[in-house]
Structures are given as structure tokens and as C-alpha cells.
Design a protein around this nucleic acid. Sequence first.
DNA 1: GTCCAGGACCTAG
DNA 2: CTAGGTCATGGA
Length: 286
Amino acid sequence: MAAAEIFLPVSDYDLAATLDSGQVFRWRQNGEYWHGVLGRHCLTLTQTDGGIHARAAARVSDWQFLKEFLQADVVLADILKTFPDDEPMRAAVAACRGLRLLRQEPWECLASFILSSTKQIVQIRQIVSLLCERFGERLAPHLNFSNGIGYSFPTPEKIASTDEAQLRACKMGFRAPSLLNAARQIAEGKLDLEKIRALDYAAARAELMTLRGVGGKIADCVLLFGYGFDTAFPVDVWIERALQELYFPKRRASEQRLRKFADTHFGPHAGYAQQYLFHYMRMRLK
DNA sequence: GTCCAGGACCTAG
DNA sequence: CTAGGTCATGGA
């Protein structure tokens, strides 16, 4: 029986922290409600005792896409117990227990993070919103969503059919040619995002990094947030600062040193540990 | 006005 | 391997 709502029983899950931790860029909070779009589904999520309630603008025959996105079946405790038992990680977990990694659609994730370089999260949201409003499809016209919500994420084919000037008009600046190039590579079949699922981490990372504007950090974000490569450990300015301050407080460590440390210290779910450090650092400054 | 943002890339030492 | 410049744009 198709339904427009569902209740997912989950525990150890902080929905607000998760949707506001810089993994995704088009979920909007309105009181206890979170509005967002997955594929062509317009959704409203709320967290209640014992789980997450979802309401869709139209009937849904199969909610698997939402369980996948939220990673509702992941037992957080099993992840946390693999973290290194040191003071920084204990503090980070204590500060934001319930923070989760989502599992995004790879193209939206890749495109969003191509647009993320040297941009504050609030600005990434604005750019992605403009992109969806101008090139996505309007879903559920009877709803009065705003800020990019209520639109599908534009396909690679759609982006490939635009030009650099139209993309720059979405305020993405020098990132426009990179996004356009990535869309073309995918639309022309020269890069297959589905095929990446079958590769190992190193090969998948190298494949993504063939794209202009995609270096190690952005590739790691896509591998972690879009594919579930849990060993991926994106190192941005916040994480670099976190590693320096929390693990090498005495002497300054080089970028290479920090990178090598990150690759060996955090275990099989290093990407999860990274997200805890990232959110912990951001929270401390707000 | 200045600094910086979930970087990548290129060049010079 | 490291340091520095460049690329747009706007928040703090």
C-alpha cells in the first residue's frame, strides 16, 4: 500500500546535527521540521522519541531510498567503538553523539562538493539552491517551498546543456568550468559514477581525481558521503586545524605528516571519526 | 577595509 | 616536498 508517511525506528541518531553538519546543502530547518528533497521526493522529516518520522508531498511506494539516505540500519555504537581511545575523540563523541554519516546520490554529492572549494557552508547552500531553482525540475508545485527546496537536483545532462556564463550566474565563480566539465564527462559516458562502486578505495579516488577541480579532499568527500567508503578521510582547513591543535599541540606538523597520521590513526571508520572532529570543531567556535 | 571559507592547480625553489 | 600566487564571491 503506497503511503505518504512513514516512521523509522532509530536510536542514537541526532537528525538536526546530521543534516546541519556540512554533508548536505539543501535541507532547511523550520522549528522541529526539516524540509528537503531526495531524488524526486519532497520530504519533511521530524525526530521523535524512538525514531524519525517522514512525510512526503506525494505517495511513496517504496521507502528504501530514505532508509538508504539516513543509513537507518547502521548501529552507531558499533562504529564508535572502533574509534581510537584518545582524549580528542572522546571529547568529540561526547560533544555530538548521534551524529551520523548520510548516504547521498553520488552525482549530487560530487557536484555539490565541486562547488564547495574555499566557500563557507552557508554560501555553498546558496549556490546549490540557485543551481536547483534554475536548472532542476520543480516538484510539487502546490507546495510553497523556497531556497531551492522543491526542485530536483539538475542532471548531468541538464548541466552539460548549459554554458559557463549561466553557471557563473549562480555565483559559483571559478568553479563553473569544473562543474561544466564534470557534467559533460558524465553525460558523454566518459565517466561512470555507478562503476565507481565496484572499485577499491584507491582506484575510486584516482578515478574521481581525473576530473578538473577534484583533488584529494573533494574526492574523499564524495567517496565518504556518496559511496560509503568509510576509510576516506577528507582533510579541509577545519580538520587540518583539528589535527594540529588536538594531536600535535607542541610543534607544527606538516601537511604530509598530518595526512599520514590521519591515514593510520583512526581505524576502519576513519571517515566517521573525521565527521565527529569536523562537527566538534565547528560547534566549539559557535 | 581585512581576513577567510569543507581546494585545486601551477610554478619556483 | 614546501611555499606562494591565482581563481570568485560574500560572510564575519
